[in-house]
Computed example of a mutant assay.
Amino acid sequence: MSKEFEIAREFEVDATPEQMWEAITTGTGGWLWPMEFEPRQGGTGPFGSTLTNWDPPHRLTSLVEDVEGISQQTLNQIDETIEPRDDGRRSWVRYVHSGIFVEDWDNQYDGASKHTDFYLHTLRQYVTHFAGRPVAFATFDGPGASTAADAFAAVGRALGLADDTAEGARVQARGPEGQLLDAVVDYRNPYFIGLRTDNALIRFFGRNHWGAPVGMSVHDFASDADAKHNETAWKGWLNETFAA
Results as ranks from 00 to 15, higher is better:
Ser2Lys: 15
Ser2Glu: 15
Lys3Thr: 10
Ile7Arg: 13
Ile7Ala: 12
Asp14Trp: 03
Glu22Gly: 06
Trp33Ile: 10
Pro34Asp: 03
Glu36Trp: 06
Phe37Ser: 05
Arg40Ser: 10
Gly42Thr: 03
Thr44Arg: 15
Phe47Val: 09
Asn53Val: 14
Leu60Met: 09
Thr61Gly: 02
Ser62Pro: 01
Ser62Trp: 06
Val64Thr: 15
Glu65Asp: 06
Glu65Lys: 02
Glu65Ser: 03
Gly69Ala: 10
Thr74Glu: 15
Glu83Gly: 12
Arg85Gln: 09
Arg85Ile: 13
Trp92Asp: 11
Tyr95Ile: 07
Val96Phe: 04
His97Pro: 07
Ser98Phe: 04
Asp104Cys: 03
Asn107Pro: 03
Gln108Arg: 02
Ser113Pro: 11
Ser113Ala: 14
Ser113Ile: 12
Lys114Ala: 14
Lys114Cys: 09
Tyr119Cys: 12
Tyr119Gln: 14
His121Lys: 11
Val127Asp: 00
Ala131Trp: 04
Val135Trp: 00
Ala136Ser: 12
Ala138Gln: 01
Gly144Ala: 11
Ser146Leu: 01
Ala148Asp: 10
Val155Ser: 00
Ala158Val: 01
Glu167Ala: 08
Arg170Glu: 11
Arg174His: 10
Asp182Arg: 14
Asn189Arg: 13
Pro190Thr: 00
Arg196Lys: 07
Ala200Cys: 01
Ala200Ile: 01
Leu201Gln: 13
Ile202Met: 05
Arg203Glu: 13
His209Lys: 10
His209Met: 03
Gly211His: 12
Val218Gly: 06
Val218Tyr: 06
Ser223Val: 05
Ser223Met: 07
Asp224Leu: 02
Asp226Trp: 10
Ala227Ile: 02
His229Ala: 10
Asn230Glu: 10
Asn230Trp: 07
Ala233Lys: 04
Lys235Phe: 02
Phe242Asn: 00
